[in-house]
Amino acid sequence: MSQSLFKTIAITIGDINGIGPEITLKALTQTPRLRAFRVAIIGPESAVRFWQNHLRIDLLLPRIASLEEWPEGAVAAVLDEDREQPDIRVGELSSAAGKISGKALAQAIQLACAGKVHAIVTAPVSKQALHLAGFHYPGQTEFLAEGLGAADFAMMLSADQFRVALATTHLPLRQVAAAISRDLIVRRLRVLQRDLTTRFRLAQPRIAVTGLNPHAGEGGLLGDEEQTIIAPAIQQARNEGIAAEGPFSADALFGRFKKNRFEAYLAMYHDQGLIPLKMFGFGRAVNYTAGLPVIRTSPDHGTAFDIAGKGLAEPASMVEALRLAATLLASN
């Protein structure tokens, strides 16, 4: 019997008013490789049934109160301890939906810490709804990192072999320059290199590092962070055996990424790295968090309240998130 048969992938339900349940249900019907694992949707069974009926998705998903009572022969199930009956308001922002999103994440963290869950795939949440419900995190990445005790982590999106990690994540642009430090960049490069080698099985991953300023500072004329912070951080990383290069002008670097020789990129801020990544692979890109003790992936988009309930949500990115989680689990 394959060792992967004993591994569990948890899918947190996300915002029940958005497209998270829809893309989850659709993806489960399109990902046959998951039959080698146990897949648990964490969230209210009533919400799952609502979306199954609304979208007319016929999928066997028995309810369980704990992973220990997994049904014989079941590939997927709904893990619902409390049997809540949430008020679903399709396409609307609500603190009640934020509470359910946060509870699902907290339960996934608890199960992962207990060694009962080996990968977490997070459906989209509304950050605003999470905040309204009292979960004050910039995003799911930071929520999971704190709960799982990961002091050093890196948000990385990938589409095919194009992988972009971020030095800073969900920060207002005006705060980015002050947040960039030599220590931060070195820590990001360490966790990125470690996960690329141990989980992605890349023998010596080459990582390109962008500058912060236009034209990588133009020799100090457009800012000196490249000279005073980023270049010294790259050199320190290289001294530690990390194959980092740069700093490069981001526009030129990403403009020719198909011809580059790098396995991954480290961008200084959110839009600098994710605009080129999503232009290349939007709808099929996957968000991966490096540095966590368990595998975590998610789709590359949000709750899409504007199309929730219309049956229009494309599940491709969720399919890829599940596939990547399964691939990494099978190879580790």
Rank of each mutant, 00 (worst) to 15 (best):
A47V: 02
P21E: 01
T29F: 03
R49G: 07
A47T: 02
S46Y: 03
G43Q: 01
F50I: 01
I19R: 03
I23K: 01
I13D: 02
S46H: 11
P32W: 13
S46Q: 13
I19C: 13
R49L: 15
T29C: 14
E45N: 12
I41R: 07
P44G: 07
V48L: 08
A36Q: 14
G18S: 08
T31C: 15
P44F: 08
E45K: 14
T29M: 13
G14C: 06
I23C: 06
V39R: 00
A27E: 01
L28M: 05
A27V: 00
V39P: 08
T24R: 02
I41C: 11
V39Q: 01
V48W: 07
G18T: 06
K26Y: 06
I41V: 14
A36S: 14
I42P: 10
V39A: 05
F50D: 02
L25D: 02
T31F: 10
T29V: 07
R38Y: 04
S46M: 11
L25W: 10
Q30F: 00
Q30E: 15
E22T: 06
E45M: 13
I41T: 08
G43W: 00
I42M: 08
I42A: 11
G43R: 00
G43F: 02
K26F: 11
G20E: 04
S46R: 14
E45C: 09
A40G: 09
G18P: 02
L25E: 03
P21V: 07
R38H: 15
R38A: 14
Q30S: 15
E45A: 14
I13Y: 10
I19F: 11
I19V: 15
L28N: 04
F50V: 02
L28V: 05
F50Y: 15
T24Y: 04
T29N: 03
I42T: 05
D15S: 09
I41N: 09
F50T: 03
I23A: 07
T24I: 15
E22D: 12
L34K: 09
A36I: 00
E22Y: 06
A27L: 02
P32V: 07
I16W: 04
S46F: 10
F50C: 06
A47I: 01
L34E: 07
F50H: 13
R38K: 15
T31A: 14
I19H: 07
I41F: 12
I13T: 04
E45S: 12
I23T: 03
F37H: 11
K26M: 10
T24A: 12
A47F: 02
V48Q: 06
A27R: 05
G43M: 01
R33G: 15
R38L: 05
K26D: 01
L25H: 04
I13W: 09
R35Y: 07
T31L: 08
P32L: 12
L25P: 02
R38C: 11
R49Y: 06
T29G: 08
N17T: 04
I13H: 11
E22V: 07
G20Q: 08
K26T: 05
G20K: 09
I16S: 08
I41K: 08
S46N: 05
T29Y: 00
I13M: 13
L34A: 14
P21Q: 01
T24D: 06
N17Q: 08
I41E: 04
G43I: 00
G20F: 13
L25M: 08
I19L: 10
F50L: 03
V39M: 03
